[in-house]
């Protein structure tokens, strides 16, 4: 598995996949995509990187513990739901704002943050599983 070509290509491949996953995540509201799919793509990217370069470098690259990323995602999703409390609407009701930045209309919503939360949960949990299994393998 750890051929020179693969090892050289893996970081680029992985980073491209992560970029793609973010793209899929953000366009999810209007086109096929979304947090679950994006998260799975990112997790695969990390898996590829891990297979090529080893668990230690993945851990270094991630900086945070994957479970912490997952927890952050859950917190973000929950908080984006809690925000509706301040507007007197039921928990998890979507709230929208469309600020104009540099002449571009931006659609911001709690729903988007919720989806980002989903993304992080999926990335974190699956990466953590994969890394744990792989580490065991080496040890």
């Amino acid at each position: 598995m750890r051929t020179v070509i693969f090892r050289t290509a893996a970081p680029y491949l992985a980073s491209l996949m992560v970029l793609f996953s973010i793209f899929v995540l953000l366009r999810g509201h209007n086109e096929p995509g979304g947090g679950f799919i994006g998260g799975l793509i990112a997790a695969s990217a990390i898996a590829i990187y891990g297979i090529a370069c080893g668990v230690a470098s993945v851990r270094r690259a991630l900086y945070f513990h994957p479970m912490a990323i997952s927890g952050f995602g859950l917190l973000l999703a929950a908080l984006s739901g809690v925000l509706s409390v301040f507007f007197g609407v039921p928990f998890l009701t979507g709230l929208w704002a469309t600020p104009h930045l540099f002449g571009v209309e931006l659609d911001l919503s709690t729903v988007m943050f919720f989806d980002i939360g989903v993304y992080f949960v999926v990335v974190g949990a699956i990466t953590s599983i994969g890394l744990a299994l792989e580490e065991r393998e080496r040890g």
Binding site: G34, F36, V122, A125, I126, I129
Partner: peptide
């Protein structure tokens, strides 16, 4: 189904481990 796929995947991982 979309959520079910992800959940059954995590369940599969758990069972496997």
């Amino acid at each position: 189904i979309l959520t079910a796929i992800v959940i059954s995947f995590s369940f599969f991982c758990f069972l496997l481990v």
